[in-house]
């Protein structure tokens, strides 16, 4: 017993070091698994509040460019509105009273990040605004990510610039789909893998979400093909996609809730059980 105590006293620095190092290693591994880090995240009361109050000041710096982006979006929406009006005749039933498939919330990015290997954004809407895990996040130009954790007033968003994020995407022209992955280099490019060799891939084609994950509706724009190559087994294409979004300059974002997500989930679970 005496010897054990002596040993602990003699090596107390080393033991403490090993102990704390293991804790940090465990925390690191936990963040690599999806949805697990409970306390060490930027959407909690302390860190979220800190970023929130600083954002009140810092958002003025990007006001001009953000206004331009919003104005451009308004222009597009207005064009859509006026063009669709010509199709509507007087007997047409008001579609607003129908059940909608998606509900949209707006939010502001209070912490952006794109230089790490696993980037996570923080936005200023949370459980109090009925935001929940696994809602999709987009901007006016395209895809941004998926809600990861929520607190009362803040949520963290698993960005597409995160090496653990996997989002299903497809070619706009045909329905060949693959998976979006990020390899941690440039915030401007993302890889689309597992596109079958038979697909007619052309540089400059548009990539959109496929709607297979039930998080995003089909057709959210992602980017255009920059270049492509066959993978090692020569069965699938690996496409390099240039994002429409400037991930380094984000402010106004939209959160998408798929109102049918629960129903689809249950259905899939039931079929899986049998």
């Amino acid at each position: 017993m005496q010897q054990i105590i002596n040993f602990i006293i003699r090596y107390k620095n080393f033991l403490l070091f090993i102990f704390l190092f293991c804790i940090s290693l465990a925390l690191t591994i936990l963040t690599h698994a999806y949805h697990t880090s409970k306390f060490i995240n930027s959407a909690n009361y302390l860190t979220g509040g800190f970023y929130g109050s600083f954002h009140h000041i810092s958002r003025y710096f990007s006001l001009n460019s953000q206004n331009a982006i919003l104005a451009e979006e308004n222009k597009e929406l207005r064009a859509l509105l006026y063009n669709s009006e010509t199709d509507i005749d007087s007997t047409y039933i008001d579609t607003v009273s129908y059940d909608r498939a998606y509900r949209i919330y707006s939010a502001n990015v209070i912490k952006n990040s794109y230089a790490l290997t696993n980037n996570i954004l923080t936005i200023n809407k949370g459980e109090n605004d009925s935001i929940k895990q696994d809602f999709g996040v987009i901007s006016s130009k395209g895809l941004i990510g998926i809600i990861d954790r929520t607190s009362g007033n803040y949520s963290s968003v698993l960005s597409i610039l995160n090496s653990t994020s996997r989002i299903s995407a497809q070619l706009k022209k045909t329905n060949h789909f693959g998976t979006l992955v990020w390899e941690g280099n440039s915030p401007q490019y993302i890889k689309l893998i597992d596109i079958p060799k038979i697909a007619p891939v052309v540089v400059g084609d548009t990539i959109i979400t496929s709607g297979r994950s039930f998080i995003f509706p089909k057709g959210v724009p992602i980017g255009t093909i920059k270049d492509f190559e066959l993978d090692r087994a020569e069965n699938y294409y690996k496409l390099r996609v240039e994002l429409f979004n400037d991930m380094t300059n984000l402010e106004h974002v939209y959160i998408i809730e798929n109102l049918a997500a629960n129903e689809i989930d249950n259905l899939l679970n039931e079929t899986g059980d049998e």
Binding site: L20, L25, L30, T31, S42
Partner: peptide, 18 residues
């Protein structure tokens, strides 16, 4: 906590402190 990076800074700091 602020960077959402799990424990990578904590690990590196503990190592150099030791």
């Amino acid at each position: 906590m602020f960077q959402d990076t799990g424990g990578i800074h904590a690990g590196a700091c503990v190592f150099i402190a030791y």
